[in-house]
Design a protein around this nucleic acid. Structure first.
Lengths: 142, 142
DNA sequence: TGATAACGACTATGGATGTAGGCGATAGAC
DNA sequence: GTCTATCGCCTACATCCATAGTCGTTATCA
């Protein structure tokens, strides 16, 4: 069991199915298992038991927490979606993209897989973040 | 066994360890197992046997092909890095990012996780791809 | 031509994952 | 108060993945 208190250390890895579950917690706040089940997107095709297993596993790996209410648990996210997403993105970028996001960006931009809105905001972001002191070194896997 | 001939159908999913192996094929062209082993980044810590297992599995799932030379195989990539990467990116974006790449872009840009060079090229890409007929609808998982 | 090194095929094992059932405890319906 | 629906816990099991060993066969060196 992970130690109590602040745990912004290294968020655990989250499997596919677990993501679906944890997403509902981000979207709805704290939920009992049955409400997680109910809040899942339609057509997921899982048994309630499956959802409960996933919740347990998430608790076991310290990805979510809970509070006991009567004989049931009220599950809540521990990490923000930002935090966990960042972790996944980093892993993905390192593994598949060899540390560089650019080729994918290029692909998405050229294939028009970004909406107008997204493109607009992307431009805006770039304007807000002009080039500065060029001391960056492209990190590679050690 | 997948049918012969052109196989630009759906590239198979590639596991973490397998990516390392297949990358060396993209980087070096066709290689025998022992050369794949030799070409892997230093410090991977794998036994040759492990690399061979990974190669076999890649063949089994139709991700790479081979040509028999004497008693050994010359392995070669079947799919381009582009193709496989695209597949992985799509899966990742759908699964973790809920279909939208923007939050990650934002993160990378704001956290300065892109090099100057990358930022420059990104700006360039955006300039080359100006807003056009706004008929895009943001795709969501069905 | 015989020993040996290297090859690929098959096997192994332990952990993660997807999917779920059974069981004892409890909360709520009547 | 008793029955029953529900809870979380523990167990199950097939698959995949990471990692590697065994084995029979073949290439190669001396």
């Amino acid at each position: 069991m992970p130690p109590p208190g602040k745990k912004s250390q290294t968020p655990p890895a989250i499997s596919n199915a677990e993501w679906e579950v944890i997403k509902t917690l981000w979207e709805h706040g704290s939920l009992a298992a049955r409400d997680v089940y109910a809040a899942l997107p339609e057509g997921h095709g899982w048994a309630t038991k499956t959802v409960k297993t996933l919740l347990s596993r998430l608790v076991a790996k310290g990805a979510i927490g809970y509070e006991q209410i009567g004989n049931s648990y009220l599950y809540r996210a521990i990490y923000s979606r930002e935090q966990l997403t960042r972790r996944e993105v980093k892993g993905f970028v390192d593994r598949v993209l060899d540390g560089s996001l650019l080729p994918v960006l290029a692909h998405f931009i050229e294939e028009r897989n970004l909406s107008e809105e997204e493109l607009r905001r992307l431009r805006h972001l770039l304007e807000k973040n002009p080039p500065k002191g060029a001391s960056r070194v492209k990190r590679r896997k050690s």
